[in-house]
Amino acid sequence: MPGSFSIAANASSFFTEIGALSHFAGRFFKELFSRPFEFREFLRQCYQMGNKSLVLVAITGFILGLVFTLQSRPTLMEFGAVSWMPSMISISIVREIGPVIIALICAGRIGSSIGAELGSMKVTEQIDAMEVSGTNPFKFLVVTRIFAATLMLPILILIGDFVALVGSALVENVKGDVSFLLYFNQVFEALEFSDLLPATVKSFFFGFAIGLVGCFKGYNSNKGTAGVGKAANSAVVFTSLLLFVIDFIAVFVSDVIYG
């Protein structure tokens, strides 16, 4: 039966991929804690990922807050509960929608660029050239990128959340008569540490996943220009999937911790 054969083959290649990815992650941690640390390249990557994604994240966040508020408003108005708007929007953005949407955007922006960059470096033997020049390419390329993504994502998400709330406040300010001060007062009235902290911890994992999968796909891409495109594409697809898995686990765990 060719059908069952292909399913078995798919499953086996999937598990092989997961195994290779875990191995890759293990190598990352091993090399992260051994000297030397490529600090300048790390800063350069922080700049590339953080600052260069900022405009994208800010626009996405702003529209997210705007649209989310506009869409929820009529329903809440029906219940006469428009005054609940700030607390509802802020909790859902800070807890869930902000981190997930911004991480997905970053998976597209950062994950694909890492995948394509490392993929093309692999294909054009730049990675070999580094090794020959006495530089550990894994340290120089992979460790710095994964670490930078892990640290930059929480900051991007925090900024994105903030901009989204500003967008939401703008709608409330124009459509309702809620001042920015009142809006943010109610936002902080509604938010708990149990909203902010799990979301922040979660966003570190999001960043790690984006960096890890991007580097993994790029570093192990096949020869040829087709391999580069495939690396970039599968980095985004696999990262997006992984983000939702991480999100599920994070929600599950924080639900257990915070009851």
């Binding site: 800063l43 700049y47 900022l54 903030f162």
Partner: peptide
């Protein structure tokens, strides 16, 4: 670049 990165990181931490 470092300056802008610094501003970015400080902004995030401030938030």
């Amino acid at each position: 670049q470092n300056l802008r990165l610094g501003i970015f990181i400080i902004a995030g931490i401030l938030i």
